[in-house]
Design a protein around this nucleic acid. Structure first.
Lengths: 225, 225
DNA sequence: AGCTTCAGTTGACTTATATCAAAGCGTGCC
DNA sequence: GGCACGCTTTGATATAAGTCAACTGAAGCT
C-alpha cells in the first residue's frame, strides 16, 4: 500500500491515529489493508469472528442487526472519515451487527490483535479511543431517547437536520441511500416514512426531488425535534 | 476512609480496578470519597460539570434524561457493584444524564482528573476501561433493537428475565423500584405497564404480590423476548 | 420493445399504545 | 380516627403507526 496516497493521508489525519509517531503509524499500516467493495457487498456478518475494525475512505457502509425473529434494523450509516466496529474489538469474539456497502465503497481494515498490542504501550492512543467510544455511547443514548420520546416525524426531522451540510443554500439534504433504509434507521416502516414525507410536503416545510430533500423552513423544522 | 472496610474491598475486587498495583490503588483511594444518599437525593444533574465517576456500594441509582420538552426517560437503574458515568469523563465537560438515589444509597466517587492521569500510565487499566465501555455500548445497541423490534410486553418480559436471580425457586423478581420508574425504563406509560402485568397475570404466566413478581413459566416467557 | 423486479406511493383497515378521567388503596400525618 | 397524597389500577377514547393490498414508475434484462 502506497503510504503517500490520499487515502492513507486521510486515515493519518483522522482523530484516532493522529497521536501516533511516524514509526507507530508505519507499524499500523503494515497490518492494514484497503478493501474495495461493490454495492451490496458485505464486510462482515453478524456473529462473525471479529478480527478487524474499519475506516471508511469513500462510499457508505450500512450497519444492521437481525433479530432472532428475522426482523431487521439499520443501526447506523457510516460515511467517509468515520470508523466502525472499533468497540467490537473488546467484546470478546463476535460482531454484534453485520456490515455491508450500500454503494461502491473503499475502506481500510485494521488488524485488531495488532492494534491491541499497540494500545497497551500508548496511553495517548488509549485515551483517544476511549474518547471515541464515549462519544459513540453518547450518540446511542441520544438515539434511545429519540426512539422513546419522539414521534416518527420528529425523528425524521432530527435526522434531516443532522445531515444538513453547514451553510447549504438552499438548505438541502441528499439522502444517498434508498428510502427504506432511512426508514429502518429511523425505526419506522417505509410506508410511514412515505406518509410523513407527504405530510411535510403538504405543509410546505420541505420539497422532495428524487433523493434530494429541500428544507424550506429550517427554523420551523428546528422547533420540532 | 478506612482501606480495610468491606466497602473498599468490594471496590478493589471489582473488574475495573483489579488490575491496579497496591500503590496505584492507594493512589486512587486518596482521591476518592464515599457518599451516603437519602432516598430521592441527587448525585448530579443533567448538564452539571463532570468531575467524578461512581461505583455503587449499596442502594439503587436512577440515571435519567430530560428532553427539552420536559419529558423524562429513565435510562438505567444502577445496582451495587456497578459503575456509572465513567464514559462522561471523556465527553468533555458535562453529564448527559442526571443521577439520583432511589433509596438509601452508598457510593464511591472517583476523581476524573486524577483517574485520567493514572490511565495514561497504565495500559492494562485502559484496556479494561475500553472493555467496560464496549460492553456498555453493546447493551445500548441491544436496548435500541428492543425498543424498535419488540412490543412493550416483550420488553417487560425481557427485563424480568434479566433481573431474575440465578436459580431462584420459585422464579421471582423483586422490583425494588416504583412501577412508574420501570415503565419509563421500558419506554412505556405506567398505565400500559399495569395493563401488561394484568394480562400476563390473566394468562397465568406470572403472579404479582406487592413489588414481587413470580414467574410461573419461565420457559414459556423465554419464548417471547 | 416487452417483461420482470424492486422501490416508492397511496388507500383501507387493524392494532398497540398514549391520553384523559375516575376510582381504589396504602401510608404518613395532623 | 380521618384526611391528604402519591402510586396504581381500570375504563373509555383517541391517535400514531403497522399491516395488507393495489398501483405506479424506473431500471435492468432478454
Amino acid at each position: 500500500m502506497n503510504p503517500d496516497s490520499p487515502d492513507i493521508q486521510q486515515l493519518k489525519d483522522g482523530y484516532l491515529l493522529a497521536a501516533l509517531s511516524h514509526s507507530e503509524f508505519e507499524d499500523v499500516m503494515a497490518h492494514a489493508s484497503v478493501r474495495t467493495l461493490a454495492p451490496g457487498e458485505g464486510v462482515f456478518d453478524q456473529g462473525d469472528l471479529c478480527t478487524h475494525f474499519f475506516f471508511v475512505l469513500a462510499g457508505i457502509v450500512k450497519l444492521g442487526r437481525i433479530a432472532p425473529s428475522g426482523e431487521e434494523k439499520v443501526m447506523d450509516l457510516v460515511r467517509p472519515r468515520h470508523y466502525f466496529a472499533e468497540a467490537a474489538m473488546f467484546l470478546g469474539g463476535r460482531y454484534p451487527v453485520y456490515a455491508c456497502a450500500l454503494e461502491a465503497t473503499r475502506l481500510v481494515a485494521l488488524d485488531n490483535a495488532h492494534f491491541l498490542r499497540l494500545l497497551r504501550g500508548n496511553g495517548d492512543l488509549c485515551i483517544r479511543l476511549l474518547s471515541t467510544l464515549s462519544q459513540r455511547m453518547h450518540g446511542l443514548v441520544n438515539e434511545i431517547d429519540n426512539l422513546t420520546l419522539h414521534s416518527g416525524a420528529e425523528r425524521l426531522i432530527g435526522y434531516l437536520l443532522e445531515q444538513l451540510p453547514e451553510g447549504a443554500v438552499p438548505a438541502s439534504v441528499w439522502l444517498n441511500v434508498p428510502k427504506h433504509v432511512i426508514a429502518s434507521r429511523l425505526g419506522i416502516q417505509p410506508e410511514t416514512l412515505s406518509r410523513i414525507l407527504a405530510k411535510l410536503r403538504a405543509e410546505r416545510l420541505i420539497d422532495v426531488h428524487e433523493g434530494m430533500i429541500v428544507l424550506n423552513d429550517v427554523a420551523a423544522l428546528r422547533r420540532f425535534s
